[in-house]
């Protein structure tokens, strides 16, 4: 996984690079629009991390230029601009995600992973949360290294919650993912699946918790999320 980081502040660039390397990413850095264009000509990157306020121009211009040439490389905007319309204009310009400074490395790494996973969703990956692991190809759930027999629908649910661990996943998007378009979904069907998965995990001493956010959806928390959720 090769990332290009475009950030003009050398100290911040260094910290981000070190942090992401620690999370297993290969990171190249450059400090301006011209450098970034040159780097993109030479190498192919899996993800672009783009600061907007650069010494030789606005990062949004580079973003638009990349999208104009039908380059779909995922782009994560990292910026100090957190204005009312900044997020929307960033996403409109073609950014895939938008992160306002300051942030912490685990948050940045999680967003990078989410973006990198998108095109390769068909590939097998092992999702890990606390002592729970899910092999997306084999559809297998392991708790503390032991296989736990889990029905397909609960595996689907766990996969979606693990992908967004620490975040609330909307009820509607879970229902869309778990049930076919034309299937009759009773209002309590999802709730029942969540309840069964909770019991199954509790029975195996898993250290993740699935919490209900009434009226919104569900969220899976790992022990690590408790610190800075």
């Amino acid at each position: 996984m090769r990332l290009l980081l475009v950030e003009d502040n050398p100290r911040l660039a260094g910290l981000i690079r070190d942090g992401l390397r620690g999370q297993g990413f290969a990171v190249d850095g450059c400090t301006g629009l011209a450098d970034a264009e040159a780097a993109l000509q030479v190498n192919s990157y899996d993800l672009l991390l783009l600061d907007l306020g650069l010494p030789d121009g606005d990062g949004l211009a580079l973003l638009r230029a990349i999208r104009r040439r039908r380059d779909t490389t995922p782009i994560l905007v990292i910026t100090a601009r957190g204005g009312l319309d900044d997020r929307v204009s960033g996403l409109d310009a073609g950014a895939d995600d938008y992160l306002v400074k300051p942030f912490q490395i685990p948050e940045l790494a999680a967003r990078c992973r989410a973006l990198l996973r998108r095109p390769g969703a068909a590939l097998g990956t092992v999702l890990i949360g606390g002592n729970v692991a899910l092999d997306t190809a084999a559809r297998e759930v392991l708790v503390a290294g032991c296989t736990v027999e889990t029905p397909p629908r609960e595996v689907d649910l766990l996969e979606h919650l693990l992908r967004r661990a620490g975040h609330v996943v909307a009820k509607a998007s879970l229902e869309n993912a778990l049930y076919a378009m034309d299937a009759e979904v009773t209002p309590n069907a999802l709730e029942a699946v969540v309840s069964r998965l909770r019991k199954r995990l509790a029975a195996t001493a898993a250290n993740v918790t699935i919490r209900t956010v009434h009226g919104v959806g569900y969220a899976l928390f790992t022990p690590a999320d408790g610190d800075h959720a």
């Binding site: 620490g166 975040h167 609330v168 909307a170 919490r211 956010v213 009226g215 919104v216 959806g217 969220a219 928390f221 999320d225 408790g226 610190d227 800075h228 959720a229």
Partner: peptide, 14 residues
Amino acid sequence: GRAVVGQLAPRAFA
């Protein structure tokens, strides 16, 4: 409202 509550719920739980 749903989006905001979804975003803030983890912090509320913490």
